[in-house]
Protein backbone atom coordinates (compact mmCIF):
# COMPACT_ATOMS: atom_id res chain seq x y z
CA UNK A 1 0.00 0.00 0.00
CA UNK A 2 1.28 3.42 -0.90
CA UNK A 3 0.86 6.91 0.51
CA UNK A 4 1.21 9.38 -2.36
CA UNK A 5 2.81 12.76 -1.87
CA UNK A 6 0.73 15.77 -2.79
CA UNK A 7 1.48 19.48 -2.51
CA UNK A 8 -1.12 20.21 0.11
CA UNK A 9 -3.57 17.82 1.77
CA UNK A 10 -5.96 20.64 2.72
CA UNK A 11 -8.27 20.05 -0.24
CA UNK A 12 -8.54 16.33 0.62
CA UNK A 13 -9.83 16.61 4.18
CA UNK A 14 -13.44 16.25 3.04
CA UNK A 15 -14.87 12.86 2.13
CA UNK A 16 -15.97 13.03 -1.48
CA UNK A 17 -13.34 15.68 -2.36
CA UNK A 18 -12.66 15.42 -6.08
CA UNK A 19 -8.96 14.69 -5.56
CA UNK A 20 -9.64 11.32 -3.87
CA UNK A 21 -10.77 9.68 -7.10
CA UNK A 22 -7.25 9.96 -8.46
CA UNK A 23 -5.61 8.81 -5.22
CA UNK A 24 -5.61 5.12 -6.14
CA UNK A 25 -7.86 3.18 -3.79
CA UNK A 26 -6.60 -0.26 -2.86
CA UNK A 27 -8.87 -3.08 -1.63
CA UNK A 28 -8.21 -4.58 1.81
CA UNK A 29 -9.00 -8.26 2.35
CA UNK A 30 -10.78 -8.80 5.67
CA UNK A 31 -12.14 -11.65 7.73
CA UNK A 32 -13.98 -12.08 11.03
CA UNK A 33 -11.68 -11.90 14.07
CA UNK A 34 -11.57 -15.61 15.01
CA UNK A 35 -13.88 -16.83 17.76
CA UNK A 36 -10.97 -18.58 19.45
CA UNK A 37 -9.28 -15.19 19.86
CA UNK A 38 -12.19 -13.70 21.77
CA UNK A 39 -10.99 -13.06 25.29
CA UNK A 40 -13.91 -14.39 27.34
CA UNK A 41 -15.90 -17.61 27.33
CA UNK A 42 -19.12 -15.61 27.41
CA UNK A 43 -18.31 -13.89 24.12
CA UNK A 44 -17.29 -17.16 22.46
CA UNK A 45 -20.50 -18.86 23.55
CA UNK A 46 -22.70 -15.94 22.57
CA UNK A 47 -21.23 -15.59 19.08
CA UNK A 48 -20.75 -19.24 18.24
CA UNK A 49 -22.59 -19.97 15.02
CA UNK A 50 -23.61 -16.35 14.62
CA UNK A 51 -22.38 -14.35 11.64
CA UNK A 52 -20.15 -11.37 12.27
CA UNK A 53 -17.21 -9.57 10.71
CA UNK A 54 -18.44 -10.22 7.19
CA UNK A 55 -16.22 -8.63 4.53
CA UNK A 56 -17.23 -4.97 4.26
CA UNK A 57 -15.41 -4.50 0.93
CA UNK A 58 -13.02 -1.97 2.45
CA UNK A 59 -11.00 0.24 0.08
CA UNK A 60 -8.45 2.78 1.24
CA UNK A 61 -6.23 5.50 -0.21
CA UNK A 62 -3.80 7.81 1.54
CA UNK A 63 -1.74 10.92 0.85
CA UNK A 64 0.72 13.17 2.69
CA UNK A 65 2.25 16.57 2.10
CA UNK A 66 5.34 16.25 4.24
CA UNK A 67 3.48 17.49 7.32
CA UNK A 68 0.20 15.69 7.48
CA UNK A 69 -1.03 12.20 6.60
CA UNK A 70 -4.60 11.72 5.38
CA UNK A 71 -6.41 8.44 4.81
CA UNK A 72 -9.73 7.88 3.11
CA UNK A 73 -11.62 4.64 3.85
CA UNK A 74 -14.73 3.44 2.03
CA UNK A 75 -16.76 0.42 2.96
CA UNK A 76 -20.34 -0.75 2.77
CA UNK A 77 -22.67 -1.48 5.68
CA UNK A 78 -24.35 1.55 7.24
CA UNK A 79 -26.42 0.84 10.34
CA UNK A 80 -29.65 2.66 11.11
CA UNK A 81 -29.51 5.18 13.94
CA UNK A 82 -30.96 4.52 17.39
CA UNK A 83 -29.29 1.15 17.90
CA UNK A 84 -27.05 0.11 20.77
CA UNK A 85 -23.68 0.10 19.05
CA UNK A 86 -22.06 2.40 16.46
CA UNK A 87 -20.48 1.58 13.12
CA UNK A 88 -16.74 2.02 13.48
CA UNK A 89 -13.33 1.70 11.85
CA UNK A 90 -9.86 1.51 13.37
CA UNK A 91 -6.55 1.95 11.60
CA UNK A 92 -3.62 0.17 13.24
CA UNK A 93 0.01 1.28 13.01
CA UNK A 94 2.93 -0.38 14.84
CA UNK A 95 4.72 1.83 17.39
CA UNK A 96 7.87 -0.31 17.77
CA UNK A 97 9.25 -3.85 18.01
CA UNK A 98 7.08 -5.49 15.37
CA UNK A 99 3.85 -6.07 17.34
CA UNK A 100 1.54 -8.96 16.31
CA UNK A 101 -1.60 -7.41 14.75
CA UNK A 102 -3.84 -10.35 15.60
CA UNK A 103 -2.98 -10.02 19.31
CA UNK A 104 -3.40 -6.22 19.24
CA UNK A 105 0.26 -5.87 20.20
CA UNK A 106 2.06 -7.16 23.26
CA UNK A 107 4.12 -5.97 26.19
CA UNK A 108 6.93 -3.80 24.83
CA UNK A 109 5.45 -3.89 21.30
CA UNK A 110 2.51 -1.49 21.21
CA UNK A 111 0.13 -0.69 18.40
CA UNK A 112 -1.41 2.72 17.93
CA UNK A 113 -4.98 2.80 16.66
CA UNK A 114 -6.87 5.71 15.15
CA UNK A 115 -10.53 5.01 15.71
CA UNK A 116 -13.65 6.61 14.36
CA UNK A 117 -17.17 5.62 15.40
CA UNK A 118 -20.44 6.87 13.98
CA UNK A 119 -21.79 8.28 17.27
CA UNK A 120 -18.73 10.39 18.15
CA UNK A 121 -17.48 13.40 16.23
CA UNK A 122 -13.77 13.07 17.08
CA UNK A 123 -10.97 10.75 16.05
CA UNK A 124 -9.55 8.79 18.98
CA UNK A 125 -5.97 7.74 19.48
CA UNK A 126 -5.57 4.46 21.37
CA UNK A 127 -2.49 2.46 22.29
CA UNK A 128 -2.81 -1.30 22.84
CA UNK A 129 -0.38 -3.89 24.18
CA UNK A 130 -2.65 -6.91 23.81
CA UNK A 131 -6.29 -7.92 23.59
CA UNK A 132 -8.23 -6.08 26.30
CA UNK A 133 -5.16 -3.95 27.09
CA UNK A 134 -5.83 -0.64 25.42
CA UNK A 135 -5.55 2.83 26.87
CA UNK A 136 -5.97 6.34 25.59
CA UNK A 137 -3.12 7.01 23.19
CA UNK A 138 -1.08 10.14 22.59
CA UNK A 139 -2.81 13.19 21.18
CA UNK A 140 -1.29 14.40 17.98
CA UNK A 141 -1.30 17.63 16.05
CA UNK A 142 -3.69 17.79 13.11
CA UNK A 143 -5.90 14.93 14.27
CA UNK A 144 -9.20 15.19 12.46
CA UNK A 145 -11.95 13.05 11.02
CA UNK A 146 -14.91 13.60 8.73
CA UNK A 147 -17.47 11.05 7.70
CA UNK A 148 -20.10 10.92 5.03
CA UNK A 149 -22.64 8.31 4.04
CA UNK A 150 -25.04 7.82 1.18
CA UNK A 151 -27.01 5.35 3.30
CA UNK A 152 -25.11 2.31 2.01
CA UNK A 153 -21.45 3.22 2.08
CA UNK A 154 -19.28 4.98 4.64
CA UNK A 155 -16.70 7.44 3.42
CA UNK A 156 -14.39 8.41 6.26
CA UNK A 157 -11.39 10.72 5.98
CA UNK A 158 -8.99 10.83 8.91
CA UNK A 159 -5.72 12.63 9.37
CA UNK A 160 -2.79 13.04 11.73
CA UNK A 161 0.61 14.69 11.58
CA UNK A 162 3.65 12.87 10.23
CA UNK A 163 6.41 11.99 12.67
CA UNK A 164 6.55 9.57 15.56
CA UNK A 165 7.88 9.95 19.06
CA UNK A 166 7.04 8.13 22.27
CA UNK A 167 3.83 6.18 21.76
CA UNK A 168 3.06 7.84 18.41
CA UNK A 169 3.41 5.25 15.64
CA UNK A 170 6.05 6.54 13.20
CA UNK A 171 4.83 7.81 9.83
CA UNK A 172 7.78 9.36 8.00
CA UNK A 173 8.14 10.59 4.43
CA UNK A 174 10.19 8.19 2.30
CA UNK A 175 9.92 5.37 4.83
CA UNK A 176 8.02 2.14 5.15
CA UNK A 177 5.82 0.95 7.96
CA UNK A 178 2.84 -1.39 8.27
CA UNK A 179 -0.87 -0.83 8.48
CA UNK A 180 -3.92 -2.86 9.52
CA UNK A 181 -7.68 -2.28 9.71
CA UNK A 182 -10.75 -3.31 11.66
CA UNK A 183 -14.41 -2.58 10.89
CA UNK A 184 -17.42 -2.94 13.19
CA UNK A 185 -21.03 -3.15 12.02
CA UNK A 186 -23.19 -1.67 14.78
CA UNK A 187 -26.49 -3.07 13.56
CA UNK A 188 -25.06 -6.56 14.01
CA UNK A 189 -24.09 -5.67 17.63
CA UNK A 190 -20.42 -5.83 16.69
CA UNK A 191 -18.11 -4.31 19.30
CA UNK A 192 -14.82 -5.16 21.01
CA UNK A 193 -13.25 -8.21 19.42
CA UNK A 194 -16.39 -8.98 17.39
CA UNK A 195 -15.28 -7.30 14.16
CA UNK A 196 -13.86 -7.74 10.68
CA UNK A 197 -10.08 -7.33 10.58
CA UNK A 198 -7.39 -7.25 7.94
CA UNK A 199 -5.73 -10.57 8.91
CA UNK A 200 -2.10 -9.40 8.92
CA UNK A 201 -0.04 -6.28 8.49
CA UNK A 202 0.02 -4.68 5.05
CA UNK A 203 3.20 -2.88 4.06
CA UNK A 204 2.72 0.88 3.80
CA UNK A 205 5.28 2.95 1.88
CA UNK A 206 5.18 6.74 2.19
CA UNK A 207 6.45 8.68 -0.85
CA UNK A 208 9.55 10.74 -0.15
Amino acid sequence: MRTRRVNDVASLLEPGAAGWDAAGFEPVAMMPAPLAMQPTEYIRVKWEGREYGSDPGLKVASVHDGKRWVLCARWSGVSPSGIDFPDAIAVALPVRNDPPLILMGMDGAPIQYLRWQSNKPALRSIVATGIGHSENGPKMAAMSVKAHTNGEQWDVVMSRSLGGEGEVAPLLAGQKTKIGFAVWRGANEERGGIKAFSIDWIELALDA
Binding site: Q38, P39, T40, E41, Y42, I43, I131, G132, G192, G193
Partner: peptide
Protein backbone atom coordinates in the same frame (compact mmCIF):
# COMPACT_ATOMS: atom_id res chain seq x y z
CA UNK B 1 -19.77 -13.21 38.84
CA UNK B 2 -20.92 -13.78 35.27
CA UNK B 3 -20.55 -10.05 34.59
CA UNK B 4 -16.89 -10.01 35.59
CA UNK B 5 -16.07 -13.11 33.59
CA UNK B 6 -17.79 -11.82 30.44
CA UNK B 7 -15.97 -8.49 30.28
CA UNK B 8 -13.19 -8.46 27.67
CA UNK B 9 -11.70 -5.31 29.21
CA UNK B 10 -11.26 -6.63 32.75
Amino acid sequence: PACLEACPRK
